[in-house]
């Protein structure tokens, strides 16, 4: 299995199972709607009968923003908690969907919607255990990042080496990104191991996936990196294109909304691509080699 081949096969699998992106998108949108609707209510209350409506259609007004934030500070304070609650529920459901995706990518012929949901139900509890363990390591990564930050601050407390301090501080964030990426990678492959090998022993699954990652680090990491880079390229393209969409007249909002949702769908597809390439690589590189022996036998008639 080469890097290029795994990417090709991964994209093909995502294309074949494109219908599932609508489920993911619908759930993402519904979750976002739960948080956005209260804000929409506040905005209608504040602006629907105000001349500020016209002003804000033309351009963003910073003083209005400051006043709005102050005026509804209690509601906005509550919004943070609603958001965190939604994030929690979203994580649980996303784990469910991941189980479905692993199931359909594992058995390409069984890619009906019912198979997707069956996989979700089948693997959810195992995957949640992995999520809980990985959350600990995410927290650890942030802890390391904080400690490094304090170390840099302490080391440069009495120094005017501003550039060195800035560079070290930036490297600290790159290291955080690397740690998050590594935990995600281990978590993903552990889930895939548990699903494909139909294994229930969580720590054994993590151990085996670590072994797998150690043995195949180059291809696994390169594919992961390329897919991540594709995602980043999509975001950059959106930001470039989004800047050129005029704010007025009002119907340009529809163009802007379509572009935004295209980006969300693209990011969900990238998420699917991570999953499909990981399943393909794991299945291919962990397959047992069957030796074929040729023996000569004389057939007597």
């Amino acid at each position: 299995m080469t890097i290029l081949k795994s990417l090709k096969l991964g994209i093909r699998e995502v294309y074949r199972n494109f219908k599932f992106v609508w489920i993911l998108w619908a759930f993402n949108s519904a979750s976002a709607l739960v948080v956005a609707m209260p804000i929409y209510y506040l905005l209608t209350k504040d602006l629907n009968f105000s001349l500020y409506n016209d002003r804000l259609v033309e351009s963003f007004d910073f003083i209005w923003y400051l006043q709005f934030r102050h005026q509804y500070q209690t509601n906005i304070g509550e919004f943070v908690y609603i958001f965190l609650a939604v994030v929690g529920i979203y994580s649980l459901m996303r784990t469910f969907f991941l189980g479905g995706l692993v199931a359909v990518f594992n058995s390409p012929k069984k890619n009906h919607t019912v198979d997707f949901f069956y996989g979700g139900v089948k693997y959810w509890w195992r995957f949640i255990k992995i999520v809980v363990i990985s959350l600990f390591f995410f927290a650890l990564s942030f802890g390391i990042n904080d400690l490094l930050g304090e170390l840099i601050e302490y080391g440069y407390k009495n120094s005017e080496e501003l550039v060195t301090e800035m560079v070290l501080s930036s490297i600290r964030y790159l290291l955080l990104l690397f740690l998050i990426g590594s935990v995600t990678l281990i978590s993903d492959y552990s889930k895939i191991y548990l699903a494909i090998k139909d294994e229930f022993r969580i720590f054994y699954g993590i151990k085996e996936s670590l072994k797998f990652l150690k043995n195949n680090f180059t291809i696994v990491f390169t594919v992961f990196f390329i897919v991540a880079a594709m995602g980043a390229a999509g975001v950059t393209a959106y930001n470039l294109a989004g800047g050129y969409i005029p704010k007025t007249p009002f119907y340009f909002l529809i163009v802007s909304f379509i572009l935004q949702q295209m980006l969300i769908i693209f990011r969900l597809l990238i998420r699917m691509l991570f999953c499909s390439t990981e399943v393909i690589i794991f299945k291919d590189l962990s397959a047992e080699m069957v030796k074929a022996e040729i023996t000569e036998e004389k057939l007597e008639f």
Binding site: A36, I39, Y40, L43, T44, D46, L47, N48, F49, Y52, N53, D54, L56, V57, K247, F250, L253, S256, F257, Q260
Partner: peptide
């Protein structure tokens, strides 16, 4: 009543 800015910002 006007909805433009509230919808635009909410979106």
């Amino acid at each position: 009543e006007q909805f433009e800015s509230s919808i635009s910002l909410a979106v």
